[in-house]
Write a protein that binds this DNA or RNA. Structure first.
Lengths: 167, 167
DNA sequence: AGGATATCTGAACAAATGTTCAAAACAAAC
DNA sequence: GTTTGTTTTGAACATTTGTTCAGATATCCT
Protein backbone atom coordinates (compact mmCIF):
# COMPACT_ATOMS: atom_id res chain seq x y z
CA UNK A 1 0.00 0.00 0.00
CA UNK A 2 2.80 2.43 0.84
CA UNK A 3 4.42 1.60 -2.47
CA UNK A 4 1.24 2.38 -4.35
CA UNK A 5 0.79 5.60 -2.38
CA UNK A 6 4.32 6.71 -3.20
CA UNK A 7 3.81 5.93 -6.89
CA UNK A 8 0.58 7.91 -6.89
CA UNK A 9 2.18 10.72 -4.93
CA UNK A 10 -0.04 10.63 -1.87
CA UNK A 11 0.04 9.44 1.73
CA UNK A 12 -1.05 5.90 2.52
CA UNK A 13 -4.16 6.91 4.38
CA UNK A 14 -5.57 8.63 1.30
CA UNK A 15 -5.80 5.31 -0.53
CA UNK A 16 -8.49 4.19 1.86
CA UNK A 17 -10.85 6.69 0.33
CA UNK A 18 -10.78 4.53 -2.77
CA UNK A 19 -10.70 1.00 -1.43
CA UNK A 20 -11.97 -0.46 1.82
CA UNK A 21 -8.90 -2.66 2.09
CA UNK A 22 -6.06 -4.20 0.15
CA UNK A 23 -7.92 -7.38 -0.63
CA UNK A 24 -10.72 -5.50 -2.38
CA UNK A 25 -8.21 -3.48 -4.35
CA UNK A 26 -6.51 -6.64 -5.52
CA UNK A 27 -9.78 -8.29 -6.36
CA UNK A 28 -11.10 -5.25 -8.24
CA UNK A 29 -7.91 -5.01 -10.28
CA UNK A 30 -8.13 -8.63 -11.29
CA UNK A 31 -11.81 -8.59 -11.91
CA UNK A 32 -11.77 -5.51 -14.09
CA UNK A 33 -8.84 -6.95 -16.01
CA UNK A 34 -10.73 -10.13 -16.73
CA UNK A 35 -13.96 -8.30 -17.47
CA UNK A 36 -12.11 -6.17 -19.99
CA UNK A 37 -10.51 -9.26 -21.48
CA UNK A 38 -13.84 -10.99 -21.96
CA UNK A 39 -15.49 -7.87 -23.31
CA UNK A 40 -12.71 -7.15 -25.76
CA UNK A 41 -12.50 -10.58 -27.32
CA UNK A 42 -14.88 -10.91 -30.24
CA UNK A 43 -15.36 -14.27 -31.87
CA UNK A 44 -17.50 -15.18 -34.85
CA UNK A 45 -18.76 -18.70 -34.28
CA UNK A 46 -19.73 -18.99 -37.96
CA UNK A 47 -16.28 -18.21 -39.33
CA UNK A 48 -13.58 -20.66 -40.31
CA UNK A 49 -12.00 -22.25 -37.21
CA UNK A 50 -8.51 -21.54 -38.47
CA UNK A 51 -9.34 -17.85 -38.90
CA UNK A 52 -10.99 -17.79 -35.48
CA UNK A 53 -7.92 -19.34 -33.89
CA UNK A 54 -5.62 -16.94 -35.65
CA UNK A 55 -7.68 -14.06 -34.41
CA UNK A 56 -7.56 -15.45 -30.87
CA UNK A 57 -3.77 -15.73 -30.97
CA UNK A 58 -3.34 -12.20 -32.25
CA UNK A 59 -5.86 -10.82 -29.82
CA UNK A 60 -4.41 -12.59 -26.80
CA UNK A 61 -0.86 -11.52 -27.50
CA UNK A 62 -1.71 -7.89 -28.09
CA UNK A 63 -4.19 -7.56 -25.25
CA UNK A 64 -1.71 -8.99 -22.78
CA UNK A 65 1.18 -7.01 -24.19
CA UNK A 66 -0.76 -3.80 -23.63
CA UNK A 67 -1.33 -4.55 -19.95
CA UNK A 68 1.85 -6.03 -18.48
CA UNK A 69 1.08 -4.84 -14.95
CA UNK A 70 -2.44 -6.20 -14.84
CA UNK A 71 -1.24 -9.51 -16.26
CA UNK A 72 1.57 -9.70 -13.73
CA UNK A 73 -0.79 -9.10 -10.84
CA UNK A 74 -3.36 -11.51 -12.19
CA UNK A 75 -0.77 -14.26 -12.15
CA UNK A 76 1.42 -13.51 -9.15
CA UNK A 77 -1.20 -12.41 -6.67
CA UNK A 78 -3.73 -15.15 -7.27
CA UNK A 79 -2.71 -16.89 -4.08
CA UNK A 80 -3.40 -13.78 -2.02
CA UNK A 81 -7.11 -13.76 -2.81
CA UNK A 82 -9.59 -14.93 -0.23
CA UNK A 83 -11.16 -18.26 -1.19
CA UNK A 84 -14.42 -16.54 -2.15
CA UNK A 85 -12.66 -14.01 -4.36
CA UNK A 86 -10.44 -16.69 -5.84
CA UNK A 87 -13.48 -18.63 -6.99
CA UNK A 88 -14.91 -15.57 -8.75
CA UNK A 89 -11.65 -14.83 -10.53
CA UNK A 90 -11.21 -18.42 -11.56
CA UNK A 91 -14.71 -18.43 -12.98
CA UNK A 92 -13.89 -15.48 -15.19
CA UNK A 93 -10.61 -16.93 -16.31
CA UNK A 94 -12.38 -20.17 -17.06
CA UNK A 95 -14.92 -18.32 -19.18
CA UNK A 96 -12.12 -16.91 -21.30
CA UNK A 97 -10.49 -20.29 -21.64
CA UNK A 98 -13.80 -21.75 -22.69
CA UNK A 99 -13.94 -19.35 -25.61
CA UNK A 100 -10.67 -20.75 -26.91
CA UNK A 101 -11.73 -24.30 -26.27
CA UNK A 102 -14.89 -23.70 -28.26
CA UNK A 103 -12.79 -22.68 -31.25
CA UNK A 104 -10.67 -25.78 -30.94
CA UNK A 105 -13.74 -28.00 -30.66
CA UNK A 106 -15.24 -26.41 -33.75
CA UNK A 107 -12.03 -27.05 -35.65
CA UNK A 108 -11.92 -30.66 -34.58
CA UNK A 109 -15.46 -31.13 -35.89
CA UNK A 110 -14.68 -29.57 -39.26
CA UNK A 111 -11.48 -31.61 -39.45
CA UNK A 112 -9.25 -28.54 -39.55
CA UNK A 113 -7.75 -29.42 -36.19
CA UNK A 114 -6.54 -32.70 -34.79
CA UNK A 115 -6.02 -32.69 -31.05
CA UNK A 116 -6.65 -35.59 -28.72
CA UNK A 117 -8.18 -33.40 -26.03
CA UNK A 118 -9.35 -29.84 -26.60
CA UNK A 119 -8.94 -28.89 -22.93
CA UNK A 120 -5.30 -29.92 -22.93
CA UNK A 121 -4.67 -28.16 -26.21
CA UNK A 122 -6.36 -25.03 -24.89
CA UNK A 123 -4.10 -25.00 -21.83
CA UNK A 124 -1.02 -25.52 -23.94
CA UNK A 125 -1.94 -22.62 -26.21
CA UNK A 126 -2.75 -20.27 -23.34
CA UNK A 127 0.48 -21.08 -21.49
CA UNK A 128 2.50 -20.58 -24.63
CA UNK A 129 0.95 -17.22 -25.44
CA UNK A 130 0.87 -15.84 -21.93
CA UNK A 131 4.52 -16.77 -21.51
CA UNK A 132 5.43 -14.09 -24.01
CA UNK A 133 4.82 -11.43 -21.38
CA UNK A 134 7.63 -12.73 -19.20
CA UNK A 135 10.37 -12.14 -21.77
CA UNK A 136 9.20 -9.86 -24.58
CA UNK A 137 10.78 -6.42 -24.61
CA UNK A 138 9.83 -3.81 -27.17
CA UNK A 139 13.48 -2.89 -27.66
CA UNK A 140 14.50 -6.45 -28.37
CA UNK A 141 15.53 -8.27 -31.51
CA UNK A 142 12.03 -8.85 -32.80
CA UNK A 143 8.94 -6.71 -33.10
CA UNK A 144 5.72 -7.81 -31.50
CA UNK A 145 4.33 -8.50 -34.95
CA UNK A 146 7.25 -10.81 -35.74
CA UNK A 147 6.69 -12.66 -32.51
CA UNK A 148 2.96 -12.86 -33.12
CA UNK A 149 3.52 -14.29 -36.59
CA UNK A 150 5.84 -16.95 -35.27
CA UNK A 151 3.58 -17.95 -32.44
CA UNK A 152 0.71 -18.18 -34.86
CA UNK A 153 2.76 -20.52 -37.02
CA UNK A 154 3.52 -22.75 -34.08
CA UNK A 155 0.01 -22.75 -32.63
CA UNK A 156 -1.49 -23.42 -36.01
CA UNK A 157 0.79 -26.33 -36.71
CA UNK A 158 0.44 -27.71 -33.18
CA UNK A 159 -3.30 -28.13 -33.44
CA UNK A 160 -3.64 -28.73 -37.17
CA UNK A 161 -4.57 -31.97 -38.76
CA UNK A 162 -1.05 -32.75 -39.89
CA UNK A 163 -1.50 -32.67 -43.64
CA UNK A 164 0.48 -29.50 -44.17
CA UNK A 165 -2.41 -27.58 -45.67
CA UNK A 166 -3.00 -24.77 -43.19
CA UNK A 167 0.14 -22.76 -42.53
CA UNK B 1 10.33 -18.80 8.39
CA UNK B 2 7.80 -19.49 11.13
CA UNK B 3 5.76 -21.49 8.64
CA UNK B 4 8.76 -23.61 7.72
CA UNK B 5 9.61 -24.09 11.39
CA UNK B 6 6.09 -25.25 12.17
CA UNK B 7 6.13 -27.68 9.24
CA UNK B 8 9.48 -29.07 10.41
CA UNK B 9 8.27 -29.21 14.01
CA UNK B 10 10.78 -26.85 15.56
CA UNK B 11 11.03 -23.29 16.85
CA UNK B 12 11.99 -20.52 14.42
CA UNK B 13 15.36 -19.88 16.00
CA UNK B 14 16.52 -23.42 15.31
CA UNK B 15 16.34 -22.82 11.57
CA UNK B 16 19.20 -20.37 11.82
CA UNK B 17 21.56 -23.26 12.56
CA UNK B 18 20.99 -24.36 8.99
CA UNK B 19 20.82 -21.13 7.05
CA UNK B 20 22.37 -17.74 7.76
CA UNK B 21 19.23 -15.98 6.55
CA UNK B 22 16.10 -16.39 4.49
CA UNK B 23 17.67 -15.10 1.30
CA UNK B 24 20.38 -17.80 1.38
CA UNK B 25 17.78 -20.46 2.02
CA UNK B 26 15.76 -19.29 -0.96
CA UNK B 27 18.81 -19.07 -3.15
CA UNK B 28 20.08 -22.51 -2.11
CA UNK B 29 16.70 -24.06 -2.82
CA UNK B 30 16.57 -22.58 -6.30
CA UNK B 31 20.18 -23.30 -7.08
CA UNK B 32 20.06 -26.93 -6.02
CA UNK B 33 16.84 -27.35 -8.00
CA UNK B 34 18.46 -26.01 -11.15
CA UNK B 35 21.70 -27.91 -10.55
CA UNK B 36 19.67 -31.09 -10.25
CA UNK B 37 17.75 -30.21 -13.39
CA UNK B 38 20.91 -29.68 -15.42
CA UNK B 39 22.56 -32.78 -14.00
CA UNK B 40 19.55 -34.98 -14.68
CA UNK B 41 19.00 -34.01 -18.28
CA UNK B 42 21.02 -36.20 -20.62
CA UNK B 43 21.11 -35.38 -24.29
CA UNK B 44 22.85 -37.22 -27.08
CA UNK B 45 23.97 -34.65 -29.62
CA UNK B 46 24.48 -37.35 -32.23
CA UNK B 47 20.97 -38.73 -32.07
CA UNK B 48 18.04 -37.82 -34.29
CA UNK B 49 16.74 -34.32 -33.42
CA UNK B 50 13.18 -35.57 -33.26
CA UNK B 51 14.17 -38.27 -30.76
CA UNK B 52 16.17 -35.73 -28.77
CA UNK B 53 13.23 -33.36 -28.64
CA UNK B 54 10.87 -36.12 -27.62
CA UNK B 55 13.21 -37.06 -24.82
CA UNK B 56 13.41 -33.44 -23.70
CA UNK B 57 9.64 -33.13 -23.55
CA UNK B 58 9.25 -36.33 -21.55
CA UNK B 59 12.11 -35.45 -19.26
CA UNK B 60 10.92 -31.92 -18.59
CA UNK B 61 7.37 -32.94 -17.79
CA UNK B 62 8.35 -35.73 -15.44
CA UNK B 63 11.13 -33.87 -13.70
CA UNK B 64 8.88 -30.92 -13.00
CA UNK B 65 5.96 -33.10 -12.00
CA UNK B 66 8.12 -34.81 -9.38
CA UNK B 67 9.07 -31.51 -7.73
CA UNK B 68 6.01 -29.28 -7.61
CA UNK B 69 7.23 -27.32 -4.58
CA UNK B 70 10.66 -26.56 -5.97
CA UNK B 71 9.13 -25.52 -9.29
CA UNK B 72 6.61 -23.30 -7.55
CA UNK B 73 9.31 -21.56 -5.55
CA UNK B 74 11.59 -21.23 -8.55
CA UNK B 75 8.85 -19.32 -10.36
CA UNK B 76 7.07 -17.36 -7.67
CA UNK B 77 10.03 -16.27 -5.57
CA UNK B 78 12.31 -15.14 -8.36
CA UNK B 79 11.55 -11.51 -7.62
CA UNK B 80 12.65 -11.93 -4.00
CA UNK B 81 16.23 -12.74 -4.89
CA UNK B 82 18.94 -10.13 -4.49
CA UNK B 83 20.20 -8.86 -7.84
CA UNK B 84 23.43 -10.87 -7.49
CA UNK B 85 21.57 -14.08 -6.69
CA UNK B 86 19.05 -13.42 -9.42
CA UNK B 87 21.84 -13.26 -12.00
CA UNK B 88 23.22 -16.61 -10.88
CA UNK B 89 19.84 -18.30 -11.04
CA UNK B 90 19.06 -16.80 -14.42
CA UNK B 91 22.39 -18.08 -15.71
CA UNK B 92 21.48 -21.61 -14.69
CA UNK B 93 18.03 -21.38 -16.16
CA UNK B 94 19.51 -20.03 -19.33
CA UNK B 95 21.90 -22.98 -19.49
CA UNK B 96 18.95 -25.34 -19.39
CA UNK B 97 17.11 -23.40 -22.05
CA UNK B 98 20.21 -23.48 -24.23
CA UNK B 99 20.15 -27.26 -24.18
CA UNK B 100 16.67 -27.20 -25.69
CA UNK B 101 17.60 -24.54 -28.18
CA UNK B 102 20.56 -26.65 -29.31
CA UNK B 103 18.18 -29.48 -30.13
CA UNK B 104 15.95 -27.18 -32.12
CA UNK B 105 18.89 -25.73 -34.03
CA UNK B 106 20.12 -29.21 -34.86
CA UNK B 107 16.69 -30.11 -36.17
CA UNK B 108 16.50 -27.01 -38.30
CA UNK B 109 19.83 -27.92 -39.87
CA UNK B 110 18.76 -31.47 -40.66
CA UNK B 111 15.48 -30.17 -42.00
CA UNK B 112 13.40 -32.05 -39.43
CA UNK B 113 12.25 -28.81 -37.86
CA UNK B 114 11.03 -25.60 -39.42
CA UNK B 115 10.93 -22.66 -37.03
CA UNK B 116 11.68 -19.08 -37.92
CA UNK B 117 13.62 -18.46 -34.71
CA UNK B 118 14.89 -21.19 -32.41
CA UNK B 119 14.96 -18.92 -29.36
CA UNK B 120 11.31 -18.08 -29.76
CA UNK B 121 10.39 -21.70 -30.35
CA UNK B 122 12.39 -22.71 -27.29
CA UNK B 123 10.50 -20.25 -25.13
CA UNK B 124 7.18 -21.39 -26.49
CA UNK B 125 7.99 -25.02 -25.74
CA UNK B 126 9.25 -24.31 -22.23
CA UNK B 127 6.21 -22.20 -21.35
CA UNK B 128 3.86 -24.85 -22.69
CA UNK B 129 5.49 -27.67 -20.75
CA UNK B 130 6.03 -25.82 -17.51
CA UNK B 131 2.43 -24.70 -17.56
CA UNK B 132 1.37 -28.28 -16.93
CA UNK B 133 2.43 -27.95 -13.29
CA UNK B 134 -0.20 -25.29 -12.65
CA UNK B 135 -3.15 -27.49 -13.48
CA UNK B 136 -2.20 -31.15 -13.58
CA UNK B 137 -3.58 -33.28 -10.75
CA UNK B 138 -2.77 -36.95 -10.40
CA UNK B 139 -6.40 -37.74 -9.58
CA UNK B 140 -7.71 -35.98 -12.68
CA UNK B 141 -9.18 -37.25 -15.90
CA UNK B 142 -5.88 -38.05 -17.57
CA UNK B 143 -2.73 -39.79 -16.44
CA UNK B 144 0.60 -38.02 -16.67
CA UNK B 145 1.54 -40.34 -19.50
CA UNK B 146 -1.58 -39.35 -21.44
CA UNK B 147 -0.74 -35.70 -20.94
CA UNK B 148 2.87 -36.25 -21.90
CA UNK B 149 1.85 -38.02 -25.09
CA UNK B 150 -0.46 -35.18 -26.09
CA UNK B 151 2.07 -32.50 -25.37
CA UNK B 152 4.63 -34.38 -27.36
CA UNK B 153 2.23 -34.48 -30.29
CA UNK B 154 1.68 -30.75 -30.11
CA UNK B 155 5.31 -29.81 -29.60
CA UNK B 156 6.40 -32.08 -32.39
CA UNK B 157 3.88 -30.68 -34.84
CA UNK B 158 4.55 -27.09 -33.76
CA UNK B 159 8.22 -27.24 -34.69
CA UNK B 160 8.08 -29.77 -37.49
CA UNK B 161 8.68 -29.00 -41.10
CA UNK B 162 5.01 -29.21 -42.03
CA UNK B 163 5.05 -32.17 -44.36
CA UNK B 164 3.19 -34.52 -42.05
CA UNK B 165 6.02 -37.00 -41.77
CA UNK B 166 6.98 -36.83 -38.12
CA UNK B 167 4.00 -37.47 -35.84
C1' DA C 1 -17.78 34.84 0.39
C1' DG C 2 -19.25 31.11 3.20
C1' DG C 3 -20.67 26.83 4.25
C1' DA C 4 -20.97 21.87 2.95
C1' DT C 5 -18.58 18.02 1.16
C1' DA C 6 -14.89 15.49 -0.25
C1' DT C 7 -9.99 14.48 0.06
C1' DC C 8 -5.48 14.42 2.14
C1' DT C 9 -1.96 14.49 5.85
C1' DG C 10 0.56 12.90 9.76
C1' DA C 11 0.83 10.17 13.17
C1' DA C 12 -0.29 6.36 15.45
C1' DC C 13 -1.67 1.22 16.44
C1' DA C 14 -1.54 -3.75 15.73
C1' DA C 15 -0.13 -7.68 13.55
C1' DA C 16 3.29 -10.17 10.92
C1' DT C 17 7.89 -11.28 9.91
C1' DG C 18 13.22 -11.76 9.80
C1' DT C 19 16.61 -12.23 13.14
C1' DT C 20 19.33 -12.72 17.56
C1' DC C 21 20.85 -14.81 21.83
C1' DA C 22 21.27 -16.54 26.63
C1' DA C 23 19.91 -20.41 28.87
C1' DA C 24 18.21 -25.15 28.69
C1' DA C 25 18.18 -29.77 26.68
C1' DC C 26 20.46 -33.17 24.36
C1' DA C 27 24.27 -36.19 22.44
C1' DA C 28 28.94 -38.04 22.21
C1' DA C 29 33.44 -39.14 24.17
C1' DC C 30 36.23 -40.54 27.73
C1' DG D 1 29.16 -39.66 35.37
C1' DT D 2 31.42 -35.75 34.05
C1' DT D 3 33.01 -33.04 30.27
C1' DT D 4 32.62 -31.19 25.82
C1' DG D 5 30.22 -29.87 21.86
C1' DT D 6 25.95 -29.39 19.39
C1' DT D 7 21.07 -28.28 18.89
C1' DT D 8 16.75 -26.37 20.54
C1' DT D 9 13.95 -23.35 23.11
C1' DG D 10 11.70 -19.10 24.55
C1' DA D 11 11.68 -14.71 24.57
C1' DA D 12 12.92 -10.59 22.86
C1' DC D 13 14.06 -6.75 19.24
C1' DA D 14 13.61 -4.27 14.86
C1' DT D 15 11.23 -3.67 10.50
C1' DT D 16 7.65 -3.98 7.52
C1' DT D 17 2.99 -3.66 6.45
C1' DG D 18 -2.28 -3.11 6.67
C1' DT D 19 -5.31 -0.01 8.76
C1' DT D 20 -7.49 3.93 11.37
C1' DC D 21 -8.61 8.64 12.47
C1' DA D 22 -8.59 13.52 14.06
C1' DG D 23 -7.48 17.54 12.16
C1' DA D 24 -5.95 20.25 8.08
C1' DT D 25 -6.69 21.37 3.23
C1' DA D 26 -8.85 21.59 -0.97
C1' DT D 27 -13.19 21.65 -3.97
C1' DC D 28 -17.81 22.75 -5.13
C1' DC D 29 -22.28 24.99 -4.83
C1' DT D 30 -25.24 28.91 -4.09
Amino acid sequence: MREIAREVGVQVGALYNYTPDKQSLLFDLMKSHLDALLAAFQDDADADPVARLKHFVQFHIHFHHDRPDAVFIAYMELRNLTPANFVQIETLRRAYEDRLEAILRAGVITGDFAVADTKIAMRAVIAMLTGINTWFRADGRLSLDDVTAQYWQMVCKAVSASDGSSP
